[in-house]
Computed example of a mutant assay.
Amino acid sequence: MPAPDPITSPQNPRIKNLLKLQQKSSERRAQGLTIVEGHRELTIAHGAGVRITALFVCPELAGETQLRELRGLLGSGTTEWFEVSKAVFEKVAYREGSDGVLALVQPPRRTLESLPLPAAPLLLVLESVEKPGNLGAILRTADAAQATAVIVCDPRTDLYNPNAIRSSIGCSFTVPTVATTRAELLAWCQQHNIQTYAAALTDHAVPYTTCDFRGPTALVMGTEADGLTPELMQACDHTIIIPMRGAIDSLNVSTATAILTFEAVRQRQ
């Protein structure tokens, strides 16, 4: 149940810690925690088996119906409850139009070796992703397509950055996600006979619609600014493109990933 005395000061140690966790990936790693804001995102995280250690609610924003649903969801488990004044909640909320619900959760930590692989896995590989919004959008695609996993090589952003979780609408927790290095990824794919398809604008790239994605497949995507590194591009088994008919020569990486992913899904049906 909520604590009897609402938190009304931004100097409260718990509030100061929320801000540190929100702003610093080093704090999130050190504490093994991240922040989830929003009733829907929290419900998805809970359904995925994520441990919710503390819940901060603003009754004025959340409303009694939503609070009642949260009590039913979390029951009398180990989650700590804290009521927060509207002024304090607005200080820690990181999105507009917040619904007054914010939680501390323990994100899962996975490795390539721990990933359960079906006979023909469909993997989305992102190299050096740095924008949490792009990562979140790709996680939504992976969830919708029921991809096996999202693998991030040499990430420049925390996989459980609160903004990535927000952009994914909680799919950060429904899709197995692993951070690794380029060398480890390539060795692992070779070990499991996974064909790697580098999405890159090169002279020898072939249209993605000519490829067979029905077997063990890894779709390998680069950053919007620089694309794939030459090392990873050259190490992949195939190079593919999405043919462009207009003035531009590329798409947003999350859009391109969605196109390739659902072509693989179409073929597998």
Rank of each mutant, 00 (worst) to 15 (best):
E83I: 06
S85C: 09
V88Q: 12
F89H: 13
E90Q: 14
E90M: 10
K91P: 04
K91D: 06
E96H: 13
G97A: 04
G97W: 05
S98E: 09
D99C: 00
G100M: 05
V101A: 04
V101R: 02
V101Y: 02
V105Q: 06
Q106T: 15
Q106W: 04
P107S: 04
P108T: 11
P108L: 03
R109F: 06
R110G: 03
R110M: 02
T111V: 01
L112W: 02
E113A: 15
L115W: 01
P118R: 15
P121V: 10
L122K: 02
L123N: 01
L124R: 08
V125F: 03
L126H: 10
E127D: 13
E127A: 05
S128A: 14
S128F: 00
E130A: 14
K131I: 13
N134M: 04
L135E: 11
L135P: 03
A137R: 14
A137T: 14
I138V: 15
I138M: 11
I138W: 12
R140S: 00
T141V: 12
Q146A: 13
A147K: 06
A147H: 07
T148C: 07
A149F: 03
V150H: 05
I151D: 13
I151A: 11
V152N: 05
V152P: 03
V152I: 12
C153R: 00
C153L: 15
C153E: 14
D154M: 03
P155T: 12
P155Q: 08
D158Y: 03
D158R: 05
Y160R: 02
N161T: 05
N161D: 15
N163F: 05
A164S: 14
A164D: 12
I165N: 10
I165F: 08
I165R: 09
I165L: 10
I165A: 09
S167K: 01
S167E: 01
S168R: 13
S168V: 02
I169N: 10
I169D: 06
I169L: 11
S172K: 03
F173T: 13
T174K: 06
P176S: 08
T177L: 12
T177S: 11
V178D: 08
V178R: 06
A179F: 00
A179K: 01
A179C: 03
T180F: 01
T180G: 07
T180Y: 04
T181I: 04
T181H: 08
R182V: 06
R182A: 03
L185F: 14
L185N: 09
A187V: 00
W188M: 04
C189M: 08
C189Q: 07
Q191P: 00
Q191S: 10
H192F: 04
I194M: 09
Q195D: 08
Q195K: 10
A200I: 08
L201D: 10
T202S: 14
D203I: 11
D203R: 14
V206K: 15
V206I: 14
V206Y: 09
P207S: 11
T210Q: 13
